[in-house]
C-alpha cells in the first residue's frame, strides 16, 4: 500500500459515488468490479468495500437530497425499506435452497423487462411531471409484496437492491425517476449495515482500502446528488437502461456458465 494506490482507490470511489448517486444504485455496482478487476483486490475484500461505498453514497447523496431538494419520500421509504429488508433477510436465510444459476437467469430476465419498461416510459416526455408525489396510498400498499419479493431475490443472490427498487419505485409506485433514485439512495444505507457487520466479523474489511474509497465515494455522491437535480430525467433514464442491460448480461452469463451461483 502506497500513496499512489490510495489515490487510485480514491479516484475509483469518486466515479462510483457519482454514478451511484445519479442512478440510486448505491455505488457498489462500480466499486466492486473496479477494485477486483482493475486493482486486483480479492473478491471478498472488494465486496466488503462495496458495502462501505454503498453506505457512503447513501449518506453523502441523502444529506444533499434531503437538505437541498424534496426528492426523498421519507415516509414511503421507511415502509418500503421494512418490506425490502425483511425480504432480503428471508432471502439470505434461504440462500442455497434454490438453484443459483436458475435464479441468476431469472433475475437477468427481470432486469431486461425493467429496462424495456423504463425505455417505454421514455416515449412519454412529460411523464415525470404528472406522476404523483407522494405516492398514492392504495398503490403503495399493493406494491409492498413486490418490494418484499425484490428483497428476497436480492438476498438470495447477494446483490444490492437498487437495480430492482428504482424501476419498482418509478414504474409501479409511479414516483418521478429523480425521486425514485433519491429515495432508493436513502434506503440503501440501512440495507448495507447487516452485511457489513458480517464482513467485519470475518475480518474481511480492509480499512486501508475502505477509507480512501469511502472518502472518494462520499465526494462523488455529493456531486452526483447535485447533478441529479440538474440533469434531465430522460438522460438519467437512458443511463439507467444501459446499466440494467449490462447487469442483466453479466448475471445471465454467470447463470449460464455457473460462475458465482
Amino acid at each position: 500500500m502506497n500513496g499512489a494506490f490510495v489515490l487510485y482507490v480514491f479516484a475509483g470511489g469518486l466515479g462510483s459515488g457519482l454514478l451511484g448517486a445519479l442512478m440510486g444504485l448505491g455505488g457498489a455496482i462500480v466499486a466492486i468490479p473496479y477494485l477486483n478487476l482493475l486493482l486486483a483486490v480479492p473478491m471478498h475484500a472488494a465486496a466488503a468495500c462495496g458495502l462501505v461505498s454503498t453506505l457512503a453514497t447513501s449518506c453523502g447523496a441523502s444529506g444533499r437530497n434531503l437538505c437541498q431538494s424534496d426528492l426523498v419520500e421519507v415516509d414511503a421509504a421507511l415502509l418500503i425499506q421494512l418490506f425490502t429488508a425483511a425480504g432480503s433477510l428471508a432471502g439470505g436465510l434461504l440462500a442455497g435452497a434454490i438453484h443459483g444459476p436458475t435464479l441468476q437467469i431469472l433475475f437477468a430476465v427481470m432486469l431486461l423487462y425493467g429496462s424495456v419498461e423504463v425505455g417505454r416510459s421514455l416515449r412519454r416526455r412529460d411523464i415525470d411531471d404528472v406522476l404523483a408525489r407522494p405516492p398514492e396510498a392504495a398503490r403503495l400498499q399493493t406494491s409492498l409484496a413486490f418490494f418484499f419479493g425484490a428483497g428476497v431475490v436480492c438476498g438470495l443472490l447477494g446483490v444490492g437492491g437498487g437495480l430492482m427498487v428504482v424501476p419498482l419505485l418509478h414504474l409501479f409506485l409511479r414516483l418521478p425517476f429523480k425521486a425514485a433514485a433519491a429515495t432508493s439512495n436513502f434506503m440503501m444505507g440501512l440495507t448495507a449495515i447487516p452485511a457489513l457487520i458480517a464482513y467485519i466479523g470475518r475480518g474481511d474489511l480492509d480499512l486501508a482500502l475502505a477509507i480512501p474509497l469511502a472518502a472518494g465515494v462520499w465526494l462523488g455522491a455529493r456531486l452526483g446528488a447535485f447533478l441529479l437535480q440538474q440533469l434531465r430525467s430522460r438522460l438519467l433514464k437512458i443511463m439507467f437502461i444501459g446499466l440494467l442491460v449490462l447487469s442483466a448480461a453479466q448475471m445471465a452469463l454467470q447463470g449460464l456458465t455457473g460462475v458465482g451461483g
Binding site: 453506505l55 457512503a56 453523502g60 437538505c67 421519507v74 480499512l207 469511502a214 472518502a215 462520499w218
Partner: peptide, 22 residues
C-alpha cells in the same frame, strides 16, 4: 425542517466519520 435535520445528520455524521478516518 425535519428533512433538513435528517439530511444534516446524514451529511455531518458521515463527513465526520470519513474525515477523521481519512
Amino acid at each position: 425542517r425535519e428533512n433538513d435535520v435528517l439530511g444534516r445528520i446524514f451529511q455531518w455524521g458521515s463527513a465526520a466519520g470519513i474525515g477523521v478516518a481519512f
